[in-house]
């Protein structure tokens, strides 16, 4: 920032953050690899880390809420429609509006971002947990009951393991969705990979646009892949059966 101010003080038109050298950066080329590599450590890497943090916090808290709600509803089915409808409404609120509206309530910062991101994870995680629990065959439950398992044991030893693929499918969709929505959070404060994007909307810096866009896509694809691998490890019987269909 100080360096940028010094350059500005010398006068002459300067594209912000494009201080030094590099012909490509000065002429605002489509993608300046050199400039990108030079600035990766201070301009993009911290944003990637923030993006991962935002996503992990939102999906974890969202999971705790949605999972508990699903367990409650599993026992007392009346709440299902109530929770699903509430969570559906969040889904239709454009994220760019939601972040701004939450700023009026909780101010600018992480809390606001997380509240918005968590609300978007609820529907998917809730519905998938419930779908998984409902999908357990009645014969299996009868067998478990016949073996003398208590309700609690049935849940932890039979129902939850069998519901695991559906639950993880939900975590997977929730995670990539959160990574996508987290880019919009930078509209209110420069955190995450949206920050270079919104900065570029002001400056027109093409490399910022493309670098941040590609990094966000890579992050989502990698997260997706990691969860698939985790799913394979957590439900080995599926692999033995030749995969879910």
């Amino acid at each position: 920032m100080i360096a940028a101010a010094a350059v500005l003080a010398q006068g002459g038109p300067v594209i912000p953050n494009f201080g030094r050298g590099d012909e490509c950066a000065r002429s605002n080329g489509k993608f300046c690899l050199h400039w990108f590599l030079d600035n990766f450590d201070n301009r993009f890497l911290p944003r990637v880390v923030e993006h991962i943090e935002m996503t992990l916090i939102a999906v974890s808290i969202g999971f705790v809420i949605a999972f508990s709600a699903a367990l409650l509803v599993h026992r007392w089915p009346r709440g299902e429609l109530w929770f699903a409808n509430l969570a559906s409404i969040f889904y239709t609120i454009p994220s760019i509006a939601y972040f701004q509206i939450m700023v009026a309530v909780t101010g600018i910062g992480w809390t606001t971002i997380e509240i918005a991101l968590i609300s978007y994870t609820l529907l998917i995680l809730f519905r998938n947990t419930l779908t998984g629990l409902h999908g357990v065959p009645p014969e299996t439950l009868d067998a478990a009951e016949g073996m003398g398992l208590t309700r609690r044991q049935m849940l932890t030893r039979v129902e939850l393991p069998l519901a695991m693929p559906a639950i993880i499918a939900g975590v997977r969709v929730a995670t990539v969705t959160t990574i996508s929505l987290a880019t919009v959070a930078a509209f209110i404060t420069p955190l995450g990979l949206g920050a270079p994007i919104f900065s570029a909307i002001q400056t027109g810096a093409n490399t910022d646009f493309i670098a941040a866009g590609v990094l966000a896509i890579l992050l989502a694809l990698i997260a997706d892949l990691v969860i698939v691998v985790a799913q394979r490890l957590l439900s080995p019987w599926q692999r033995a059966r030749g995969g879910a269909t």
């Binding site: 969709v173 996508s180 880019t183 646009f209 866009g213 997706d224």
Partner: peptide, 12 residues
């Protein structure tokens, strides 16, 4: 396709 953040596509 699901793993393509909307704003990332717009940015690109």
């Amino acid at each position: 396709f699901r793993a393509l953040p909307s704003l990332a596509l717009i940015a690109i």
